[in-house]
Design a protein around this nucleic acid. Structure first.
Length: 641
RNA sequence: GCCGGUGUAGCUCAAUGGUAGAGCAGCUGAUUUGUAAUCAGCAGGUUGGGGGUUCAAGUCCCUCCACCGGCUCCA
């Protein structure tokens, strides 16, 4: 019979040949590297018998699909090791995930990090044993009998749709309910490393049993595994919590869990960031407002937050009246809107607010600046006519992409979420709103993923995810249409027809949370912020005490030019001062000694650089002022504010 | 919130149930240095808080707090 290969050619093989036979026919090297095969669109075991005309592709461990297969197989081996070492262990699920795999267990005794080395040794010995993975298809009754002692597996089997093929895989003495595919035998998994132990609810539901999850990863070779472990170590070095302490940017204290404290240097970064933010927003036609942190409870009842969000809110009583600390800025923003009358001629009205919000997050989810209980949203509310929505959304998209580009976030993943089953507003409203968002995305030429039914109950939204240098994805910007708030808080404007109408409200953030965005930037740049954001942009290093006067002159000249500059007057060696400057990621260092004093120059060194350049003092000030200049903003829009 | 782990000097870490230490940072002094750590001295602690066991607790037990890794990528 003949099968088709990915390059379009066909290959004659004997009847009943398997995918493994095909790999063997193509070449012994491929046969050795093969871990699974793809027949048509299905990823299957190498032992799968083929049929005439099948499209066959061999999957090796070095591809994404191949990695998934070896990791999934590694998860089974981990489960076997766990059940051998801890008799009575119940197994739950063990999928391959991005960068590795996990397996969830219910152990008869507590298992912690200390047990990883024992488990790892057991896994190694199972890998060495080259145990074959054998697939078997069973009936539902057989499956139920086979896993009679495994309550989690029984639950999974019961949830399988009627008529589904139920397959089990066995390697060594371990049988697991599994769709597959798997590698031919355990020796083909390559190198396995166990990473951590964590708690995880069965099926992710906090009402269910807490299981013990063991995370691990697998790679085709030991070398690749080690490289991955090294990357993890590098990521740890880039941890923003560590950088925040080392660079003296912010701190956390027992007295305020989840509430970050920003130090002078941290505020320099934030202020530089906000200065840029304000210029972009001014150019894009926004006005800035500020609303109070604490507002009466009745407002939150009217806005709907009381019903939908009160578990996450903080409350207080003033003069016997109930107040709430704002978890969102919109109700306050609408009060500003209502402070005056509005004509359709005023629209679009773009009101931005760097609003500090407080949200009571569960103690266990707090994580540095990434998940806090108090943060600053770079919020804005745009009030406009229905027919202006598309243009406004397009403007927001432009602003978002433009600002992301400034930080090197060129890869942006966009999602459009549409009407959920539980929602308010008329069908026409939703249809108009969704098509306006889609049309804006089309006009922006942005590819996007559709999330049907994932919108907010009051309107559809567009979410923007950015990818940092380490390939991690962060949701920052969001742009949502809101029909609820204008209605609930009774907003209106006078139209061309001299009648009162409801404005459309657009709610958006670009950076999301300033605190979280700072954390992302720190990890993205590994602490080496671009000069315009650096808390200290230049350090003047006098070679000896006799150069201190000239150093002060250099400092003054740079300071006048707008550079954040310091002088290192300590009685330390030049090498030491340079080292400290490097460790604290200062972009520029200027060494001044006898030569420079005489020539009225500086010896300029860039962060991380080996070379130095000599500049005249005035020249250096002009050069550094230019290097430290905030990014250029878009030309101002004509209309709007 | 829940599971597992960790809390010792500002930071990174030592210390069989038996006198709490080191390096870095800090301070003082010496040194005056030419591009990633000059030397010496000094100071620094109710071992996260509270309770208990013990002749004796950083160490063992209980409890509270904080932090770290996680908590549907579904056989």
């Amino acid at each position: 019979m003949k099968v088709l290969l990915p390059d379009g050619s066909d290959l004659s093989v004997h009847d009943g040949a398997t995918a493994a036979d095909v790999a063997e026919r193509i070449g012994p090297r491929l046969a050795k590297a093969a871990v699974a095969a793809k027949v048509g669109n299905r990823v299957v075991d190498l032992s799968t018998p083929l049929a005439e005309g099948d499209q066959v592709a061999i999957i090796t461990a070095s591809t994404g699909e191949g990695l998934d297969v070896i990791r999934h197989s590694a998860a089974h081996v981990l489960a076997e090791a766990a059940t051998r070492l801890y008799p009575g262990t119940k197994v739950a699920i063990g999928p391959a995930i991005k960068d590795g795999f996990y397996y969830d267990f219910e152990f008869p005794e507590p298992v912690g990090e200390d047990d990883l080395s024992r488990l790892s040794a057991e896994v190694q010995s199972l890998l060495g044993a080259a145990l074959p993975f054998e697939r078997r298809e069973v009936t539902r009754e057989e499956a139920l009998a086979l896993f009679a002692d495994e309550p989690y597996k029984l639950e999974l089997i019961r949830d399988l749709p009627a008529g589904a093929t139920i397959s089990v895989y066995q390697q060594g003495g371990f049988v697991d309910l599994c769709r597959g595919p798997h590698v031919p035998d355990t020796s083909r998994i390559g190198a396995v490393g166990l990473l951590s132990v964590a708690g995880a609810y069965w099926r992710g539901d906090s009402r269910n049993t807490m299981l013990t999850r063991i995370y691990g990863t697998a790679f085709p070779t030991k070398k690749e595994l080690n490289e991955h472990l090294q990357r993890l170590e590098m990521a740890k070095q880039r941890d923003h919590r560590r950088l925040g302490r080392e660079l003296d940017l912010f701190s956390f204290h027992d007295e305020g869990p989840g509430f970050p404290f920003f130090h002078p240097k941290g505020m320099r970064v934030i202020n530089a960031l906000l200065e840029y933010w304000r210029k972009e927003h001014l150019a894009a036609g926004y006005e800035e407002i500020r609303t109070p942190l604490i507002l009466e409870r009745t407002l939150w009842e009217r806005s709907g937050h009381w019903d939908n969000y009160k578990d996450n809110m903080y409350f207080t009583v003033i003069d016997g009246v109930d107040f709430a600390v704002k978890p969102m800025n919109c109700p306050g923003g609408t009060l500003v809107y209502k402070a005056g009358q509005h004509s359709y001629r005023d629209f679009p009205l773009r009101m931005a607010e760097l609003g500090q919000v407080h949200r009571h997050e569960l103690s266990g989810v707090l994580h540095g600046l990434f998940r806090v209980r108090c943060f600053t949203q770079d919020d804005a509310h745009i009030f406009c006519l229905p027919e202006q929505v598309e243009d406004e959304v397009l403007g927001v998209i432009d602003l978002i992409l433009r600002m992301y580009k400034t930080f090197g976030f060129d890869r942006v993943h966009v999602e459009l979420s549409t009407r959920p089953s539980k929602s308010i507003g008329s069908d026409e409203m939703w249809a108009t709103a969704e098509s306006a968002l889609a049309a804006a995305l089309a006009r922006a030429g942005l590819p996007y993923e559709l999330n049907p039914g994932d919108g907010a109950f009051y309107g559809p939204k567009i979410d923007f995810h950015i990818e940092d240098v380490m390939g991690r994805s962060w949701q920052c910007a969001t742009c949502q249409l809101d029909f609820a708030m204008p209605e609930r808080l009774d907003l209106d404007y006078v139209g061309e027809d001299n009648q009162r109408h409801r404005p459309v409200m657009l709610h958006r953030v670009v950076l999301g949370s300033i605190e979280r965005f700072l954390g992302i930037l720190l990890e993205h740049y590994g602490g080496a912020l671009p000069a315009w954001l650096a808390p200290v942009q230049a350090v003047v290093v006098p070679v000896a005490d006799r150069h201190a006067t000239y150093a002060a002159e250099v400092e003054a000249a740079l300071g006048r030019a707008g550079v954040r500059v310091e002088v290192d007057l300590r009685s330390e060696s030049v090498s030491k001062k340079i080292r400290d400057g490097e460790v604290t990621k200062v972009p520029y260092m200027l060494v001044v000694g006898d030569r420079e004093v005489e020539q009225r120059s500086v010896s300029l060194r860039r962060r991380g650089g080996r070379k130095t350049t000599s500049y005249g003092l005035a020249e250096a000030a002009a050069y550094l002022a230019d290097e430290c200049r905030p990014p250029a903003v878009a030309p101002a829009v004509g209309s709007g504010a």
